[in-house]
Nucleic acid binder design. Structure first.
Length: 180
DNA sequence: CCCTGATTCGC
DNA sequence: GCGAATCAGG
């Protein structure tokens, strides 16, 4: 993937909107957050909300040992022509958007209060390790995803995994156990 | 641990 | 110019 003018425009827009580099990378696809940050710097867009750049220590060389060279070699092979990157954010999000909406909306209700606003996820901020439990009406504006941390590859946080993967009877029993 | 942006430097 | 590796921090 190269930085076409379209992609640069989108980068500028999203960066200005305050999205994080990793979020922008996921949105663009085919680039890492490092690439995004590097581009942001080259474009001179950095220092979004920072007033002053407090002159960090110049690192002459991060060298540590021979292992580093091997790591770099491997890196370059990967970068050569491997679009098989894990950038499946969009697909994953869309999938889960359709699935659980039908069933669990009522049970998610009390959870809304448990999810701090800052942690709430939009479809753009979901990653492989954020909880994709939908909260609210997907047709309304206040719809969002749980966004709590989840294990990599697991669509929900532990709390929502319980709801999603246990039969209703088990859940009821669990509550009784917890209460008594 | 998760994440964030910043920097260096080989390519 | 690009971006992985790394640093520094929340």
């Amino acid at each position: 993937m190269s930085w076409t003018s379209e992609r640069v425009d989108l980068l500028k827009k999203l960066w200005t909107d305050g999205l994080s580099a990793s979020q922008i990378a996921a949105e663009l696809g085919g680039v890492t957050r490092n690439a995004v940050i590097g581009k942001v710097h080259r474009l001179g867009l950095s220092g979004r909300a920072k007033a002053a750049a407090p002159a960090q220590k110049p690192r002459s060389k991060p060298a540590k040992g021979g292992a580093e060279e091997a790591a770099q070699a491997a890196t370059q092979q990967q970068g050569g022509s491997a679009p098989s990157a894990p950038q499946t954010i969009g697909a994953t999000a869309l999938k889960v958007e359709a699935a659980p909406v039908a069933a669990p909306a009522p049970q998610a209700k009390p959870v809304a209060e448990l999810v701090p606003i800052a942690k709430r996820a939009t479809i753009l901020t979901l990653t492989e390790r954020t909880c994709k439990w939908p909260i609210g009406d997907p047709t309304k504006e206040d719809f969002y995803f749980c966004g709590h941390p989840s294990n990599p590859g697991v669509p929900y946080c532990t709390y929502h995994c319980r709801i999603a993967y246990q039969p209703a009877s088990d859940r009821r029993r669990d509550r009784n156990v917890a209460n008594g």
